[in-house]
Design a protein around this nucleic acid. Structure first.
Lengths: 273, 273
DNA sequence: TTGCTCCTCACGTCACGTGAGGTGGC
DNA sequence: TTGCTCCTCACGTCACGTGAGGTGGC
């Protein structure tokens, strides 16, 4: 068949993979050399393996984990590109979850550093807080953490759902209209993540109503429309999705704080009509 | 002073930290228990330590690594909140780099899955490619990888800079106007990352010129204005930043592909006037 | 007395990178 | 003959989680 054999170094240069990585893939049975010299243990690769090596590199550049990558290659070898696509789509889901997470963290860090909350960095600033507020906040954050996970079981889904409602409840007991608004928004978001259009819409509407009844405007109002757009997206109602997406964008233009605007934009960017 | 002591479990519940985490922080000298029973080795925490525990939890929720967290707490204890802020600002830089990275990866995955390039997942589809094109692409991707790193030395910066130019050069030799456009765009972006307004502006303008001369519109034109806005931001020219930001947004509305639009939105969201 | 809490190791995670110490090939 | 390439271990990474095996406290 092929007779030209490549040393590991040359093969690495041709594929863009490091020697260490190639040895690792050999050990993991992802990409075995065509031949191994029994006396020197030198690895030799065939030129026809370059294609596979480059594909591995491209997929690794896309942060595809090695086990998934192995499955993708196996599906490809078995002549089943649909299976391969499906695996990569699932991977995309993980990447998007990471994206969300980073967006949230970056936003909270910017808010923290913008000054209003820096007091917590000063010694002895934080005394005992209202316990209930703490509970509501903890549940809110924990709900977000769960939303970012991609390995939830049905039980986890159920727990997350109740947790979001619980956070909203506790905020309702002690918080302001703004807190209730944020709570409804999160509850709606949870339902969109779970693919349940009806309750997602219900709470998005509740979110909007709270804004209207309390003269809440600025970014909170924009996010109410974002929630509606997202809920309609899940419901498959393109027209309404576009209506609220547009409304959210318009309101976005009026947002005073650029950080808040950036967060809205990033969220809106994940809504596809 | 304080006499009420808390077991590790109670302390964990009050702070939202797990028992395992608390033992880890003890070992790492981040948060030592107030007292350890010498006979049972049971850890006991003081109520006044709850505040510190909660602060640690909040910062961990923001993905602050333990070593940085230790430095932040030390700065706080030393009554130097400015130092603490500075450390967190540096951390924000890392988070933003991760954010960029995920955005790119998600976008490339979506493009891959949208169908046009899925052929690579089919067996034997990819034959030997044009070597030069490969080089240009590799350099382009490698430049992005370097931009995402936050631990670059001055030598790395220099290498990254030349690499971006080299990618642009090779694409100029073989690619289309669209390739040259993307090349100029990346070169401009590199200069903004390095904080060098003059060349950033130069190449952003080159980017726009290439679009105009070749009747390139849609998302590529929008990105040319994004580059200009970013370059003006680095130059500190608010007026011009806003002008091109607005122009990029207008053009964004006309983008056909929602994926491209989302990528633009995410990029624009990181430009602050 | 029964659980429940707490303890200390030891190992696993993910994809390699970094040596150390040694040998083959042009 | 000199570098350069290649080899195989062994260890480190990051922040804990997961047992195993055992003991203290209400």
């Amino acid at each position: 068949m092929t007779e030209e054999l490549l040393s590991i170094g040359r093969f690495g240069r041709l594929t863009g993979l490091t020697v260490k990585a190639l040895r690792h893939y050999d050990a993991e049975d992802l990409l075995k050399p065509h031949e191994v010299d029994p006396s020197t243990a030198y690895r030799y690769y065939g030129v026809e393996q370059v294609e596979r090596g480059r594909l591995i590199r491209r997929l690794r550049d896309l942060d595809v984990p090695l086990d998934v990558l192995g499955d993708v290659l196996a599906a490809r070898d078995a002549g089943d590109p649909e299976k391969a696509k499906e695996l990569l789509e699932r991977h995309l889901g993980h990447v998007e979850a990471g994206l969300w997470h980073h967006q949230r963290v970056a936003h909270r860090l910017r808010v923290l550093l913008s000054g209003e909350e820096t007091s917590m960095l000063e010694p002895n600033a934080q005394i005992e807080q209202d316990e209930r507020r703490q509970v509501a906040t903890d549940l809110f954050n924990e709900t977000w953490t769960m939303m970012e996970r991609t390995d939830r079981t049905p039980d986890d889904d159920l727990r997350m759902l109740h947790m979001a409602h619980a956070s909203r409840f506790h905020w309702g007991e002690i918080g302001t209209a703004s807190h209730r608004d944020k709570g409804e928004w999160q509850v709606s978001r949870v339902y969109t993540v779970l693919g349940r259009a009806e309750p997602a819409l219900f709470h998005a509407r509740a979110c909007l109503r709270i804004c209207e009844e309390n003269d809440i405007t600025d970014w909170e109002l924009a996010f109410a429309h974002e929630a509606l757009a997202r809920a309609y997206m899940v419901a498959g109602e393109r027209q309404q999705t576009e209506v609220h997406l547009r409304r959210a964008r318009e309101l976005g233009e009026l947002i005073a704080d650029p950080e808040d605007k950036a967060l809205l934009d990033q969220d809106l960017a994940t809504i596809t009509v």
